[in-house]
Nucleic acid binder design. Structure first.
Lengths: 334, 334
DNA sequence: TTGAAAGCGCTAACAT
DNA sequence: ATGTTAGCGCTTTCAA
């Protein structure tokens, strides 16, 4: 497309609306914003004219008055987008009807880049910032605590007095293990990621709570390969192999299921397997498809979006950590 | 975080800078924007003072002058983000140093939602819009051809006179098949997705060009399951099974590799397999890891970003389809 | 109930 | 080379 030197499409301004409706701009503004007092008739007429002319207020002008810009920033260091995208979808979904658009800023553990992005956001007078990440127990490489705009944290660690949204991994894990128990599984082991992850600790603890004494936790990498290896170990030892496996994430679970099939162990008849994350691409492609814990990130995003909006509008929001429930998605592996 | 009723953090305005530097706002503005004529000394002094005071120009005010808003919109219907995220990363990377932030708008094949997003973008006076999608041969459910801002298309079909960026699937496929040939593979088949996809056509045609007469193309779904099924068919028929397989995407390739391993066919010793997309999560987890064609979406995003910027600055850009080269990423399957 | 006018922070045309 | 000033489109006092 050759650039259009003559942008003939002149936007209708509030002046045009006022003129067409036979009122002053002040009245027009009040009518359109449902403020001030005036005859319902005038208000209606102005609104009608505005609609007819396809009037859309200029956000820049509005923003210049020190009011809201109807934009927010979503900061994330989750390059892969595995967690960010569902979150973003939720945020966007919650805000788009209210005319708020979302700047997505991917900072890859790079403090300098993060600062550049945050500064750019502040220059644009965003109404708020949602900080997000790929690890619940890590902070973004940038300090957001003294910004002139509200900040909420989603799926990443924030300061003590911040509003933080995370999924309730404890509840999700508990339900997953309880599900295995309810299916008659008696020897349930937990194959999960590195101990250093907070989410590993929480999920393991929930598992322990349900199975009690017999708890048996195997730590490794977050990979399919580790799932294979763990199965090899469990089935080559002297102990009776488990009949139920709760995995720390879907990749491990897929490795486990594949390894079991290769050994001639039938899932879920001989062994039930449950994953975590409900990462469609992994869970659905596994044979049989994985039963998995979904963190409801979209819903989490919705909540975060609504909260940042409330803060932007000056409402009070109590600080603290909000844990949103996970949901066990049943497929065929467990 | 309790909302801060007193936003005490007053931003320094250009007036403050001007006063502190002992010049007028006009001079300050010119100095900071490297326009107008003045002693290098004055310019330097103003810049220094501005830096000292941490001055950041208010984008709203700037945008109100009918100039640029330093924002662009990225529209996509790729909910999963498989294609959009690398693209977005490239766009962002190209623009962030120039102070441009990106609104990400996910419209899910919903025309009404698309319109809401586009209107919101126009209200915010975006400098341009990049339209993107999950299918190269489908248009977004919204007409962007008469917008008051420039539009470029990336990884989605645009009008004839538009600037469109897509990956050179023909070249990528050709290199993939030629690689198989160079590895001494003599009977190479192509297992790919539904015929209705333009990318399937292009990749198949490239494959045909290289292997000539012996071309053998199997269409199915874009799934691992189809990879399994295709292998079952090829190895159960009367014909000699292939020694090289070029797959339409990584999921099919993974299915193929898994199926071969289950049959005791060794990859890559007996059969070489090459995928398409280089989707890390799939390609790296396959045993052995997949050699695959990468569409360089990040680079594509960079180009699209730079182009929309050029258009926003009023530069002329010739319309047409730009095909950016793919790259064969060697792992171990081929 | 409605209107006139000031002003948000910046840039650019027009002085000097 | 630098300063004065008029707006950009809107909201919001203040006045009528």
């Amino acid at each position: 497309m050759v650039s259009e030197p003559v942008k003939t499409i002149e936007r209708t301004r509030i002046y045009d609306v006022a003129a067409a409706a036979g009122v002053s701009v002040a009245t027009a503004s009040r009518a359109l914003n449902d403020t001030g007092r005036m005859t319902e008739q005038t208000r209606e007429r102005v609104k009608q004219v505005a609609a007819q002319l396809g009037f859309r207020p200029n956000t820049m002008a509005r923003g210049l008055l020190g009011k809201r810009s109807f934009t927010i920033g979503l900061l994330t260091n989750d390059t892969y987008g595995r967690f960010t995208l569902p979150l973003m979808a939720g945020v966007s979904e919650a805000l788009v009807d209210r005319g708020v658009s979302v700047f997505l800023c991917t900072i890859e553990d790079d403090a300098a880049l993060a600062k550049v992005h945050v500064d750019a956001l502040l220059d644009k007078q965003v109404d708020g910032i949602i900080a997000s990440g790929r690890r619940v127990d890590r902070r973004l490489p940038v300090d957001l605590s003294n910004l002139p705009v509200p900040v909420v944290y989603a799926f990443t660690e924030g300061p003590d007095d911040s509003v933080t949204f995370i999924s309730d991994d404890e509840q999700g894990s508990r339900e997953a293990v309880q599900w295995l128990v309810s299916r008659g599984r008696r020897r349930i082991v937990h194959i999960t990621g590195p101990e250093s992850f907070a989410s590993v600790q929480v999920r393991a603890q929930a598992y322990r709570t349900v199975v009690g004494e017999q708890a048996e936790i195997h730590h490794g990498e977050w990979s399919e390969a580790w799932g294979h290896e763990a199965v090899a170990r469990l089935w080559s030892g002297a102990d009776t192999p488990p009949d139920g496996i709760f995995c720390g994430n879907d990749q491990i679970a897929r490795g486990v299921v594949d390894a079991l099939r290769e050994r001639g162990v039938t899932v879920p008849d001989d062994v039930s397997v449950v994953g975590f994350d409900n990462w469609e691409i992994v869970a659905a492609a596994t044979r049989p498809p994985l039963t998995s814990v979904d963190m409801n990130l979209r819903e989490l995003g919705r909540e975060a979006g609504l909260t940042i909006l409330a803060l932007a509008e000056g409402k009070e929001v109590a600080p603290g950590i909000r844990r949103l429930p996970c949901q066990l998605v049943l497929r065929q592996s467990g």
